[in-house]
Nucleic acid binder design. Structure first.
Lengths: 246, 246
DNA sequence: ACTATAAATTTGTATATACATACTATTAAA
DNA sequence: TTTAATAGTATGTATATACAAATTTATAGT
């Protein structure tokens, strides 16, 4: 059934990581998709030639991630309907979001510069504060007027020169021009009041409600590539989220 | 510094759970709120009179919940992020969100009534406007003061009588009492300014920024069961979303 | 046939131990 | 002064072991 699940004890990769990967692949396979029980821990640890403790490390992570459930006295089983949840929800760039809604976009401002990063940005990228990085400022909206102000900062390793075509959808451009694939997006959404600067940019009164979004973008290896701040006029933008319990 | 963090070895509650709770309370305290290092694991395990292995179980969970970060050769530190957040992955009820972070919830107001639905609510539920539905109003927050005002409306078929225990986690109660399983949540998030009513409820000035969330909740068959409006004080709540391209 | 009891199974909890690895700080050498 | 080597510190990895608690299965008694 499982058979050739062998773990390389000489590998540099920790055993519990190897085991986790193996199990991930295992429970993806057709036999396991329907809530079947795994072999019990003692047996499985023998099959994999690792200790039960180490195996439990791997299983714990999969339980955390919602792929497995355990029950005392019963066993460990694969959760049915694994990844059809918020994970599979695909996210888009602003241009894509808008064009998907049939809204034409106008760029009111587009400015590229090299700046010294603030502390939190340097720390997000894991670089020193004295290394200049690319800053991209964009003011965008409908033909009638702007409704979002973006500030983006990019990791030096992304390899942007500042000469790229920033009118194109950003993540498409990154992929084509530099082979960077934006994969993960973590976002924090909050509300604030327009200060003088934002009010002037968005052509709105000071004190108007603003939907503020911080976006942290990572590549396929979970390395940070972009730090993005977005200020949306609240009366012209709604953020939607759809999620599903597992 | 830590002192009287004592663990009861005779308690029925597992040691690693006790330790987890202690740490949750600890890192909520003023001294630890700013990314300070915890005592190292060996020392901490001595203080708590539990083994390092057991302690690591507790810490692992807090790391997974995003409250702590660890770095080899350095130590374990509290994540800096004063404000609460709501993760979209594996969505939960408000009570669950909060208790998962070890934050005590206080109900400032809790009021149930039968009302005629507004047109948009009736249309969401697919019912007539002359049929009364259950309205649940809740004002909740931390002991110091409220930070969110909820208005919930329920579909008649949910079968609520108004006599249920609304202090319990809502979706648990629905499941136990009426076999209703809340499955899908669609949310719209935007920003607005506190009007007189909201300002009074949330004990905040008129014109303060409010994070406004509409939540549409559906059961396992995608039938609408709840229409929910949430007004969050923006300075004490951040909405976080994590997504991944596939 | 039914029921209570016991045994077997499986995860949960907990400890002690040892060494590896990443990072920091110190010390010695150039 | 700068650099390289070294020691120290903290988390990371891994094992062996023992018993507890929940659940299922088997057994014995009525």
């Amino acid at each position: 059934m499982i058979m050739k699940l062998k773990i390389d004890h000489k590998s540099q990769i920790p055993l519990h990581i190897q085991a986790e990967e193996l199990l991930r692949r295992l429970i993806e396979s057709p036999e396991y998709i329907d809530g079947k029980l795994l072999p019990n821990e003692v047996e499985l640890s023998k099959i994999l030639s690792i200790s039960r403790t180490t195996l439990r490390q791997s299983i714990n992570k999969l339980v955390y991630d919602g792929l497995l459930t355990r029950k005392k006295g019963v066993g460990t089983r694969v959760v049915e309907s694994k990844s059809l949840s918020s994970k599979s929800k695909n996210w888009m760039s602003f241009s894509q979001e808008m064009s998907a809604r049939g809204i034409p976009i106008k760029n009111f401002e587009l400015h590229v510069s090299w700046v010294l990063p603030e502390k939190r940005i340097a720390s997000f990228f894991g670089i020193k504060e004295d290394k200049k990085i690319l800053k991209l400022v964009r003011l965008r909206g409908r033909p009638e007027g702007p409704f979002v102000y973006f500030e983006s900062y990019f990791h030096p390793l992304v390899g942007l020169t500042g000469e790229e075509d920033y009118k194109a959808p950003l993540y498409e451009m990154l992929e084509k021009a530099h082979g960077i694939i934006a994969m993960i997006s973590k976002e924090e959404i909050s509300a604030l009041l327009a200060d003088e600067f934002i009010a002037e940019k968005l052509e709105t009164p000071i004190g108007a409600p603003i939907l503020f979004r911080k976006r942290f973008v990572y590549d396929i290896n979970e390395k940070p590539i972009e730090y993005n701040l977005g200020y949306y006029k609240a009366d012209s933008f709604v953020y939607t989220v759809e999620s599903r319990r597992e």
